[in-house]
Design a protein around this nucleic acid. Sequence first.
RNA 1: GCGUCGGUGGCAGAGUGGUCAAUUGCACUUGGCUGUAAACCAAGCGCCCUUGCGGCUACGGAGGUUCGAAUCCUCCCCGGCGCA
Length: 405
Amino acid sequence: MKAPVSFHVEQRFKNSLARAGVLDTLHGRVETPAFVAVGTKATVKGITPEALTPIGTQILIANAYHLYLEAGEEVIRKGGGLAAFMGWNAPTMTDSGGFQVFSLGVGFGKKLSKFLPEQASHEEAVAVFDEDLATSHGKLAVVDEEGVSFTSHLDGSLHRFTPERSIEIQHAIGADIMFAFDECTAPTAEHSYQKEAMERTHRWAERSLRAHRQNLEASAGQGLFGIVQGGRFEDLRIESAKTLSRMEFDGYGIGGSFSKRDIIGLLEKVDRELPEEKPRHLLGIGEPEDMFEGVSAGVDLFDCVLPTRNGRTGTLYSAQGKINITNALYREDFSPIDTECGCSVCRDFTRAYIHHLFQSREMLGPILATTHNLYFLTQLARRIRTSILSGSFDAFKLSFLERYH
RNA sequence: GCGUCGGUGGCAGAGUGGUCAAUUGCACUUGGCUGUAAACCAAGCGCCCUUGCGGCUACGGAGGUUCGAAUCCUCCCCGGCGCA
C-alpha cells in the first residue's frame, strides 16, 4: 500500500543541511522549503482560498483544538473533511492541540511567547517561571500523564484531550498531515521540567502513532508527524530527536520554545538526528531570518501566524524590513508597500491608502496587509527553494539579510 | 430685555472647597506580536527638565472669599432653552 504522505529530497545544498524537496499528499504536492499558511479555524483569517493561489500558498495548517471547539470535528467530517469544508482544494495539516497546552496553560494571561526574551538572563527567566507557577491562577490547561484538561477559552466549559482523543479528532477533520499530541512547554521552564515534559511527549507520541494505526481507513489517507521537544536544552533536543526517529512517523515537527541565540545550533543538531528522507517542519516559526537559519539547519516546512497576525495589526514586511503602516509618516506616502514585491496589493495600492484603511478601521486594511505579508513569506520560501536548486542559496541568504533589518 | 441652565484638556463628558495636571471614552502618537485566548495588547498624550512624592501655567475672562478654588461669591463675555 502506498503511503498517503511521501517525501523525497531533490537537491542538497553543498556543505550544509539545506535541501529542496517534494512532499506528496493525496490532495497534491508541496515543494519545499515551503511556508505553510496558518488557518487555525479552517480559515486563513481574512483571505479566501481563491486569493491564496496567487499568493503561492501550497498547504495550510489548521488546529484540532479550535476546530473541535468551534465547528466540531463531526461537522467537518460530514462536510467532506477540512479541505472540502473550507473550499481549499489542496494539502492541509492539523496541529494536535499541543500548542494550546502551553498557550492556555502556563502561558495564559502572561506575556510569555515561545521565545525566551533576548535580554532576560537564565536566572531571571527561571525566577519568572517559578513565580508564575506559584500564582498560576486563571490558566486554562492542566497537564497530567494521561493528557490535558482544558477550560474552553470561549465559554469556560471543561474539556479533555489525550493523544488518542486528539488523533480521533484529527481523523475526523481529515487533513493530509496530522501532528502527534505533545506538550509545548514555556521557554522559561527549567531543565528538570523540560525533561519530564519531553519524556511524557515521547510516550504521547507512541500513543498517537498507535491510535493512528488502529484506524486503518484514516491511516490510508493521512500521515502523522511526531514532534521533537526538549526546549532550549541541547541534550534533551538530541535525545528527543533520537527517540522519535525510532518511531515510524511520516515526518517530524520541531516544536516548543527556543532562545533566539541558540536556535541555529540546536536545530542543526536535531536535524542531524532525524531521518534524512523524512520532512521536517519547524512549528510556529517564521520570521524571514528564522527561515534562512531553519533551512540552513535542514528544515523543510515552516508555519507561522506572524504574516497574518502582523498583517491584521498593521506590521508589513518589505525587503528592507518590517514597517508599521499605521505610523503617521505613511499618511502621504504614495509608493507601494515594497517596490520589489510582485503581489497584487503592491501592484494596486499605496502605503497612504493602506494607512488610511487602518486609521479608519476599514476591514480591507487587514485583508490587504495579510495578503501582502503572506505573499512575502510564501515567496521568500519559494526563492529559498529556487536558490538551493540553482546552487546559490548562500548568496541569496547573504544578499537578503544584508538589506533586511 | 427678563428668567433659567450651562461654559473643563483635539472632541464628548466626569469632577462641584484640599488626596486634581484633573476619572472615563473617542481621537492622536509610538511600541509589541513567532504550532492564533489576538481585526489584538501595551505605553504615552498641558509646557519645561535627564531625573523627581520635581518646576511652571491651567478647568470662558477679571476680581474676591479661604491656610487652600475647576469647585464658593461678584461683575463681565459667550451659548442653549423659556417668556416677552
